[in-house]
């Protein structure tokens, strides 16, 4: 990502955190998941179902948005920065486990990489849950070939994983609301260096010495 040179920064230097493709995937998946959750609530909750009605239309929106979910997730793979973020989310280090177990994990004493262990866990659980919902949803939708007990089983899996995903999303949104800087970074792509040093020390260290978008110096170089 290149940008026009900014005027000499008197403000706090910003670090590039999320590239444009990453932000787009996050936004699109977020929107689709929200539509799925709202329509699921209408399909599932009796009072809402009777209030809103139009069962067939609501079902159509739910199914289409559900099947659309993997599109941005897979399309993002053409972007190198997206793949790099996925790699980081995938890998959990012994330090991550230590961070998860620690009661004082937020004090910054255990240096955290670009993603903390909680974010990695959320990423893995979300991706897995989306995969499970897609699989069970496909079986539920395939009235033609799936045997009936499988469709009942798929409904069972779909219902309970949807409930789990609901809780996951509530947690995710709660953490996001608690950190406006992190939330802003998913719109603008950048974070103030001081925030990075506090929340993601090891990652900030990778960028040390270069407030620009591309880290030119390796980790551990003098500030």
């Amino acid at each position: 990502m290149t940008r026009p040179a900014e005027p000499a920064a008197v403000v706090e230097p910003e670090l590039a955190r999320f590239a444009r493709p990453v932000r787009w995937v996050h936004g699109l998946v977020g929107a689709l998941v929200l539509v799925c959750i709202v329509t699921a609530a209408v399909l599932y909750n009796g009072s809402l179902a009777v209030l809103v009605g139009h069962r067939h239309l609501v079902e159509l929106v739910h199914v289409r948005c559900g099947f659309a979910l993997p599109v941005p997730l897979l399309a993002g793979l053409v972007s190198r920065s997206y793949r790099a973020d996925l790699r980081r989310l995938n890998r959990v280090t012994p330090r991550d486990w230590q961070w998860l177990r620690s009661r004082s994990r937020r004090d910054g004493r255990i240096p955290v990489g670009k993603f903390n262990a909680g974010q990695k866990l959320n990423g893995a659980l979300s991706a897995g849950a989306i995969a499970v919902l897609l699989m069970s949803g496909t079986v539920m939708y395939s009235t033609g070939w799936a045997p009936l007990p499988w469709r009942t089983g798929a409904t069972f899996v779909h219902d309970w994983s949807a409930l789990a995903v609901g809780l996951l999303v509530v947690g995710h949104v709660r953490f996001a609301l608690g950190d406006p800087v992190a939330m802003r970074s998913l719109r603008t792509g950048t974070v103030p260096r001081r925030w990075a040093q506090q929340e993601h020390g090891a990652w900030a260290a990778e960028h040390s010495g270069s407030p620009a978008d591309e880290p030119r110096s390796g980790p551990g170089s003098p500030d």
Partner: peptide, 9 residues
């Protein structure tokens, strides 16, 4: 999930 689909009923 696959196990649940097969055995969930």
């Amino acid at each position: 999930g696959a196990l649940g689909i097969v055995g969930g009923s």
